[in-house]
Design a protein around this nucleic acid. Structure first.
Lengths: 130, 130
DNA sequence: TGGCTTGTTCTATAACCTATAGAACAAACG
DNA sequence: CGTTTGTTCTATAGGTTATAGAACAAGCCA
């Protein structure tokens, strides 16, 4: 698994790690039951502190995407999108979509981009995107 | 113009202000040429420091959404979505969409939500959303 | 059993960000 | 002329980020 993390970015490292792992799950690179690298191992790969990796894993655990276990390590779990998550996600989507609209992009253009991104994920079957 | 800002949120106030103004532009509440309140006025309305409002306005100016002028104050300007913006926006959309997919939402479900949000904006004409 | 790994949990610290505060200046307005 | 407004300084308290060191319990393997 290759995670693209930019140590010079203004986005916190632990957030980038979380984002890249979430994308790997959506992409199908990580499926239910997939083990994640040990915190110290992943930290050594990037040359960062293992506490930073720990923070990223803790975020993923709070969101119900992985399960942490002394026995099995960090493992991807099947997640359920409950109503609170859907509401909070929609609010964030609203802000992001508004930014594109305010910048002059048309709704059709924006939707096409979203469709293209969703199609690029390995987990979404073609018939899901009408 | 009513801006919903939560002073207790963990999201920075200047970022919330920026987000709400961007949404107001997408919504058509603020159109090209619309004047924004003076920094000290808006700060007084929310009971916050005017430097915080200044930071939000500065962000909007950096993104080319408003123009700051000693003569006219802060005014909404017609923005153009250049290729660098589109690329950066798509990257952010990818992260957000991945989060929904990882949570188990279907691509059709996600697209329907995006379409619904876009339709709720007053600036997008109905024929833009096929 | 003994050594090793791994998740977990403390404390601590330097650097940076957020928000507030006060002050001052130049340009425009009435 | 007085007021408003954008702009630009300095300063400070509190929080976040990233690093660092240390320690412990549970599991793994030779």
């Amino acid at each position: 698994m290759i995670l693209n993390v930019d140590l010079e970015s203004d986005v916190p490292i632990y957030q980038q790690l979380r984002d890249r792992i979430v994308e790997a799950i959506a992409d199908g690179v990580l499926t239910h039951g997939s083990p994640l690298p040990a915190t110290r191992t992943l930290a050594a790969d990037f040359g960062i502190n293992f506490h930073t990796v720990n923070k990223a894993y803790d975020l993923l655990r709070q969101q119900g995407l992985i399960r942490l276990n002394r026995k099995t390590g960090a493992v991807v779990t099947p997640a359920v999108a409950d109503p609170p998550f859907r509401a909070e996600w929609t609010a964030r989507a609203r802000t992001l979509l508004a930014e594109a609209v305010a910048k002059g992009l048309s709704a059709g253009d924006i939707l096409a981009t979203c469709r293209s991104v969703l199609d690029s994920f390995g987990t979404t079957s073609p018939e899901d995107t009408p």
